[in-house]
């Protein structure tokens, strides 16, 4: 079972890895663009979330839910539905 918390940690680690911004500088309610996440990396993030949580996600998900918190809730909901 993937919790929102686990997903949020994964997203934060991903942003830190791809942008070089320290993980502890990444705030849960800040727009991910503020850490320099480009459009290509946003697509990379969607694919990485798909791989990890076994769900299919719309490619533009990060643009609809652009913060760590919003995105982890959205992914958790889809993961829960997919698991039923």
């Amino acid at each position: 079972m993937s919790t929102e918390h686990d997903i949020a940690d994964f997203i934060t680690a991903f942003i830190a890895d791809r942008t070089g911004v320290a993980a502890n500088e990444i705030e849960p309610d800040e727009n991910l663009g503020s850490y320099g996440l480009g459009s290509m990396q946003a697509v990379d993030l969607v694919g990485s979330l798909e791989d990890r949580y076994g769900v299919t996600l719309p490619p533009a998900l990060v643009f609809q839910y652009p913060t760590v918190n919003e995105l982890s809730v959205a992914v958790a909901q889809r993961a829960a539905t997919a698991g039923v």
Partner: peptide, 18 residues
């Protein structure tokens, strides 16, 4: 810092690491 990073990623699609 956030404003600079956001502007650069929106305009050029790249991250400023530091």
């Amino acid at each position: 810092r956030m404003q600079v990073r956001r502007a650069v990623s929106e305009e050029h699609g790249v991250a400023i690491a530091d």
